[in-house]
Measured scan of single mutants.
Amino acid sequence: NKFNKEMRNAYWEILLLPNLNEQQKRAFIRSLYDDPSQSANLLAEAKKLNDAQA
């Protein structure tokens, strides 16, 4: 399933972002589970926040 693969990839990438705190990571991951079809958008948002907090 395409969404499962995308979601899994986004999950691990979000977990490994160094500048997000645990609460932020949990919020993004919760959103991933709520709507896996938004994986790419959520990952992009997480990366943007990660860069902003660098």
Rank of each mutant, 00 (worst) to 15 (best):
N1S: 02
N1W: 00
N1F: 00
N1A: 01
K2S: 15
K2A: 13
K2H: 15
K2E: 15
K2V: 03
K2P: 05
K2Q: 15
K2G: 15
K2N: 15
K2R: 10
F3K: 15
F3P: 15
N4Y: 14
N4F: 11
N4S: 04
N4W: 15
N4V: 02
N4I: 07
N4M: 03
N4H: 13
K5G: 02
K5S: 01
K5D: 08
K5Y: 01
E6P: 01
E6G: 01
M7V: 13
M7Y: 02
M7F: 15
M7P: 00
M7Q: 12
R8V: 08
R8E: 15
R8P: 00
R8W: 15
R8N: 04
R8M: 15
R8H: 12
R8K: 07
N9H: 14
N9W: 11
N9M: 14
N9R: 15
N9L: 15
N9Q: 15
A10G: 02
A10H: 03
A10K: 02
A10T: 06
Y11K: 06
Y11N: 02
Y11E: 11
Y11S: 03
W12F: 12
W12P: 00
W12A: 05
W12R: 12
W12N: 10
W12I: 05
W12K: 15
W12S: 04
W12D: 04
W12E: 04
W12H: 14
E13Q: 13
E13M: 10
E13N: 14
E13G: 15
E13W: 08
I14Q: 00
I14K: 00
I14P: 00
I14N: 00
I14D: 00
I14E: 00
L15I: 06
L15F: 11
L15M: 06
L16Y: 14
L16N: 12
L16M: 13
L16K: 11
L16W: 08
L16R: 14
L16H: 15
L16Q: 13
L17Q: 08
L17H: 15
L17S: 11
L17D: 02
L17R: 02
L17E: 02
L17F: 06
L17V: 02
L17A: 13
P18M: 05
P18E: 07
P18H: 11
P18A: 08
P18W: 03
P18T: 05
P18I: 05
P18F: 03
N19K: 13
N19M: 13
N19Q: 10
N19V: 06
N19Y: 11
L20G: 00
L20I: 11
L20Q: 00
L20H: 00
N21S: 10
N21K: 10
N21E: 12
N21A: 13
N21F: 13
E22I: 10
E22N: 13
E22H: 14
E22T: 12
E22M: 06
E22D: 10
E22A: 12
Q23G: 10
Q23R: 08
Q23Y: 14
Q23M: 08
Q23A: 15
Q23D: 10
Q24D: 08
Q24R: 05
Q24G: 03
Q24H: 06
K25Q: 02
K25D: 00
K25A: 04
K25Y: 03
K25V: 07
K25H: 04
K25N: 01
R26Y: 14
R26D: 05
R26E: 03
R26F: 05
R26N: 05
R26M: 06
R26H: 13
A27F: 11
A27L: 11
A27G: 11
A27Y: 08
F28S: 07
F28A: 11
F28D: 00
I29V: 12
I29L: 06
I29E: 02
I29G: 03
I29K: 02
I29M: 03
R30D: 04
R30V: 08
S31N: 12
S31A: 06
S31F: 10
S31G: 12
S31I: 04
L32Y: 00
L32N: 01
L32P: 00
L32R: 00
L32W: 03
L32T: 01
L32S: 01
Y33S: 01
Y33G: 02
Y33L: 15
Y33F: 14
Y33V: 05
Y33Q: 02
Y33P: 02
D34M: 13
D34V: 06
D34R: 08
D34W: 09
D34P: 04
D34A: 11
D34T: 05
D35L: 06
D35M: 08
D35K: 13
D35H: 06
D35F: 06
D35E: 05
D35N: 10
D35A: 07
D35T: 11
P36Y: 03
P36D: 02
P36T: 11
P36K: 04
P36V: 04
P36F: 05
P36W: 03
P36E: 02
P36H: 04
S37M: 13
S37Q: 11
S37R: 06
S37P: 05
S37N: 05
S37E: 09
Q38F: 10
Q38S: 13
Q38D: 08
Q38N: 05
Q38E: 13
Q38L: 08
Q38W: 10
S39A: 12
S39F: 13
S39Q: 04
S39I: 14
S39G: 03
S39E: 00
S39M: 14
S39K: 11
S39L: 14
A40F: 07
A40V: 12
A40W: 08
A40E: 07
A40N: 12
N41M: 09
N41K: 13
N41G: 06
N41F: 14
N41W: 07
N41Y: 10
L42T: 12
L42G: 03
L42A: 06
L42Y: 07
L42W: 09
L42M: 08
L42V: 10
L43R: 14
L43M: 06
A44M: 10
A44G: 07
A44V: 14
E45V: 04
E45Y: 08
E45W: 08
E45S: 08
E45A: 10
E45H: 04
A46Y: 02
A46R: 00
A46E: 00
A46H: 00
A46T: 02
A46Q: 00
A46N: 00
A46K: 00
A46S: 10
A46G: 05
A46I: 02
K47Y: 05
K47H: 06
K47D: 03
K47T: 03
K48M: 12
K48L: 11
K48A: 14
K48D: 08
K48I: 09
K48E: 07
K48N: 12
K48F: 10
L49E: 06
L49H: 11
L49V: 06
L49T: 11
L49F: 09
N50K: 01
N50R: 02
N50Q: 06
N50T: 02
N50V: 03
N50S: 04
N50L: 01
D51R: 15
D51N: 10
D51K: 09
D51Q: 14
A52T: 12
A52K: 10
A52N: 10
A52P: 09
A52H: 07
A52F: 10
A52G: 07
A52L: 08
A52S: 08
A52Y: 11
Q53Y: 10
Q53P: 07
Q53S: 09
Q53D: 10
Q53N: 09
Q53L: 14
A54D: 14
A54E: 07
A54M: 12
A54G: 11
A54L: 04
A54H: 12
